[in-house]
Design a protein around this nucleic acid. Sequence first.
DNA 1: ACGGGAACTGAATCGGAAC
DNA 2: AGTTCCGATTCAGTTCCCG
Lengths: 415, 415
Amino acid sequence: MGLHRAILGDCIDADKTIDLNSVDLIYLDPPFFTQKIQQQKNREGTKHFSFHDLWANDSEYADYLVQRLLRLKPLLKDTGSIFFHCDKTASHIARLLLDSVFGEENFCSEIIWYFKRWSNSKKGLLSAHQTIFFYSKSRDFKFNKIMQEYSASTNVDQIMQKRARDSKGKSVYARSEDGKILNGGAKKGVPLSDVWEIPFLNPKAKERVGYPTQKPVLLLNRIIELVTDEDDLVLDPFCGSGTTLVAAKQLKRRAIGYTSEDAVNLTNERLANPVVTTSTLMENGRESYNQHSKEAREILNGIDYTPVHRNSGIDALLKHEIDGRPVFLRIQKQGETTLDSLVSLKRSTKTKGECIRILIKTSADSVDLSEYLEGVYIIPSTSCLLHDFLSTGDRQKQDTSSQKPSKTPADLKSP
Amino acid sequence: MGLHRAILGDCIDADKTIDLNSVDLIYLDPPFFTQKIQQQKNREGTKHFSFHDLWANDSEYADYLVQRLLRLKPLLKDTGSIFFHCDKTASHIARLLLDSVFGEENFCSEIIWYFKRWSNSKKGLLSAHQTIFFYSKSRDFKFNKIMQEYSASTNVDQIMQKRARDSKGKSVYARSEDGKILNGGAKKGVPLSDVWEIPFLNPKAKERVGYPTQKPVLLLNRIIELVTDEDDLVLDPFCGSGTTLVAAKQLKRRAIGYTSEDAVNLTNERLANPVVTTSTLMENGRESYNQHSKEAREILNGIDYTPVHRNSGIDALLKHEIDGRPVFLRIQKQGETTLDSLVSLKRSTKTKGECIRILIKTSADSVDLSEYLEGVYIIPSTSCLLHDFLSTGDRQKQDTSSQKPSKTPADLKSP
DNA sequence: ACGGGAACTGAATCGGAAC
DNA sequence: AGTTCCGATTCAGTTCCCG
């Protein structure tokens, strides 16, 4: 037998295959009580997967679950844990069952997995999270502390700075003899919280295999790393297309999963040829995007606009249209000439059809741009105007020349 | 009676005071079943607030809640909603009760309020969320759609795409005759999801009051705005120190809250006592001041200056002198006319002798200021220029009139 | 009033075409 | 050759409509 096995059948019979007290982690992703038949096709349209999530009432559903939970519990080691995946539809039912089977005192966490999602036309709030209940078998459970980076708002200096006591015993920052603040060495981060942002398996992800309700490998990775070590045994009683097994293999844990007939083959194929979506958003962090638009936010303070990401030439799309045409805006970047900025804006808006282009000029270079100005309006930033004002000797001359109504947006260039 | 009342007593008697079918929103923040006495002192240590959260067992707790829920429900209008705040300790109990009282079909959302928190050394995951169950009284509930920004990974084209039908009647993206995707104009954003990040320690209401388990005003603001309009009636049956009433007042909703003897005075002071009100105002003031100095930093980005505090007329003193004269600068504040701002700057610089005065104009009012301009230069802010640009119809005319070197700081007035 | 099925929504994401 | 950015695909989607 391999170290990663997808078994055809119902997990209620798991004790026929798996030894008592041998499992380190059970991750369950049972039907959510959606009262629907969940189904999906693979990309090629060659295979069709489905499972029934239809029940007479909640107690039938609860019965089904509790019978399996009772059979699964003895398989867990005393240091083992169980992670139960559900959503708001039946989370309260699951909580009650888990409390009764594993004991309230072994309830560790209510993990919130949340994600950004494409929206729909629902009245009310867009659902964007699912719940994972984390119970241990005993208080002496295995737990690997995972540290995360400090939030962006945390002051880096504060993280690094060492504390000491001054002559009066007050806590202050430690300083070297020459008065410089000392750094306390490597920062270890903040402990992982029970709220996890992990991208939803997006429509284009290669990781998708066509099994309905497929979970991202990244989610399983985190769970497995949290409560198991290498060579530990993971059990997924509702393993569907085998995501848990794929994650376990990647992380060098042994794993067993129970699934339906068609999905057994799918799982074995996945194990032989695993595909994991590495999220660029996760890797770079949301902050890297936000940073990009920080300058825009500052300059456009008070203007209604949509920030534009992932487009090197456009920083914002104004909510206010002009004559039915969208208004694109770019802010000249530091170290970029006005001309470069202008060209970049024009390139990016080339395919956008009829539109208005505005460049916010932030540097005071005085190159003649007249031949490039077609179709672009230039508005100077305040600091640009101020710079000009301060550096120009002949203020007297300007003063007289600028006697026109102040509402005229001056220094504006056009087609 | 006032529009915002803190009533001493148990909300079980709310029907003695409040009319049936009169309430638009009930927000409840009952004890969380922590099995502790929750207590806290105010900053000065002069007052001590506490409430008991000790119960014989869950059914005593459930009984307590359900009795009150049953009495509260008839007070709600048919278009009304109830938001039940709890945490993982008893969320499943609350769900069951709410389902039975308000009906599963009226369950709208499980809202996750999460926050960054300082770590503790507990084994396991750091708890960083609480749950708010949102139920409506009927399917025809009042709901104000709140939009949020698009994800950083959404591209412009996506934001602008229009829908149409293809030859088979299927819904697809609209295309022009030459196959290009058509713009539908900027859209409004993404609907608010059920996962809310709101800082736990809100500087506004923080610790000032000393009431345990106090909630941030920001959280209440969002809830109130989501399901009520101005003049609607908000009821908080466990209003503690009155955060809900404060938020309701701020948003011009009427509000009633039930609380304990010590807290009733606290709440009424917060609402009615001019001292307390002033302190709230002060905080608002401080915040808008911070806001403002932030704006100054942004506008003066790249300019060398010394910020000026404690002077209502001057925001900055530039490090760059002109002809040996100091340069004072003021940024027009929100809600202040250009004229007021001008006068304020002049008053504050009257005693400063020979100097240069610059006013950064941020609003687009077009009053003729010529007779007040003596000794002051006016430079428009970028957003002001942009506003002008967007609202001015005759862009063509300006275009031709502005054919002069861009380095000229235009729209500048002088002595 | 329901249950069920058909029609429709709309943005998040990344692959791969285009530059 | 690298980088940018277009657009296809998806819905533990929802709404609507009909019998």
